[in-house]
Amino acid sequence: MLSTLLSPVRGAEGRCRCTGYPRVVGKAAGVVLAGGRSTRMGTAKSELEWHGSTLLYRAAAVMARSVDGPVVVVAAPGQELPELPAGVEVVEDPVDGLGPMQGLAAGLAAVADRADVAFVCSTDLPFLHPAYVRRVLRALTDDIDVVLPVARGFRQPLAAAYQTRIAGLVAKLLAEGNQRPGMIFKHCDVTQLDDAALLADAAVAKYDPELDSVLNVNTPEDYRAARDREPPEVVVERFGALAKGGGHRPKVVRAATIGQAAEVVGLTLDRHVVAALNGDQVTKDGRLPLVAGDAVAFLSADAGG
């Protein structure tokens, strides 16, 4: 059953003062599918370098900051994964070669007891933006099983939101030999979000106006083009002893990671310097990805006292 949502989702949503992102409501998990054959790329997509870390690191980190529940990476049996951000869990597909349906089944099952809904994505979305993730998740109301974006002319089952309650259904379909995610939609209540519906969200319109969130990289050329893009514009603030000579005033820089942003303003994350992204978790991890509209605060690790 498909219905297409063309207008903004209902309900008055509170918005964050610094980024304008809508607040996430309810417990949502993030699932990143890291398996897949990467045939045309010729090398595992999860291991592709991305501004000092990997594409998979980026995807998992973007997920972690977009949801308030667990983040799980689904790997193929025996697949060696590159390093992941702190707190991200790994589950293995029980069977190899069954494609994204298998990953979806394993991922939803892994979070079903801890989250009502999950945003599921593949590894190869180098511009996935939290505003997009939140927009899609917000459309997933109790009476709907799946929110399926139809962005840039294509259905995006691997940048979509699912009720974790359908984990059993996905496993059953798989057991019956159905390996295409399209089969799920035949058995579920699905809401589609077209470009206009996605862009009706102010944060998506502002920070991801081309819906690059769903742009995936399949070939070495795609990857190179993505990698060569200019990093996003972010706002950097420095505080205390790090802000000599008026340095505390917000400064707009281009940076793909927290580490790059630090470098641009002459800082290095270490024992004495930490960062906070949009007023959220404090971190020393310079590999954490930045997206357009982010505000990074650098502060002394010995703040307080």
Partner: peptide, 23 residues
Amino acid sequence: GPATAKYRELGTLANLLAFNAVS
């Protein structure tokens, strides 16, 4: 050294904006 720079340069009031930035 750097471990006391905050206190020397701005004093504990340096916490205010930083604490505001991290909610």
